[in-house]
Amino acid sequence: MSANHYAIEVEDLVAYYGSRRILDGVSLQVGYGEIMVIMGGSGSGKSTLLRHLLALQTPRSGSIRILGRDITTASADMLHELRQSIGVSFQGGALLSSLTIGENVALPLREHTRLDDSIIEITARLKLEIVSLGGFEHLYPAQLSGGMIKRAALARAMAMDPKMLFFDEPSAGLDPVVSSELDDLIIKLRDTLGVTIVVVTHELESAFKIADHITVLDHGRILISGTADIVRNSSIERVQDLLHRRSRPIEISADDYLHRLTGG
């Protein structure tokens, strides 16, 4: 498969926070219309990878191609244009608290299009209907539950009919029914609109339900990348630790531990 067939292509990505290496040679591909789930424990580097895919951070080295464009070398104008094809549903929603839900969803359309007001309002309401928030457009974020905020954030992410959607922990903090409904919606967006979707999560049930491909990160490296079945049946111990929620022993020498505690 040539590079043109991939909506996302990451090659040998290396990222640091200060002197700490967070991503260590990560390479992955996501095909058009696929759902890729990025999993890993806390500190595995999955959120850092997401921030790099969104061009919110610049890597130390490596390349990231999104919809055929290398975002590590793209101009500000190109990134601005590219971002109109991308929707992001942030973990905390990132809704503007001074705007109603309807205004939040309409905002990207008001900023980036010259559509008539009536069309923008209908489009915003349609998006809220799709996420089962029909009739809630006049409420403010502070008046919504956690699950409603996540769904409103998704409605806003979909406002511009993006080719690609990114979700950061979509199920975190949701009750099982709402979480499952969100999973169904993610699958429906892929199936009906062909949207390429990247989901960062540590919710195993959700990951296996929605993923075409799963990439498991650990200490900034890819432990395994493949279909849900390949990951589920992996013989890699660390993968099975994650899947079965087994705690891991602390891997540090006594000297290093003492050094870390004393700073000496």
Partner: peptide, 10 residues
Amino acid sequence: DSSGVASLVE
């Protein structure tokens, strides 16, 4: 797209 659908709704 959604703007087309919204035009039909309107």
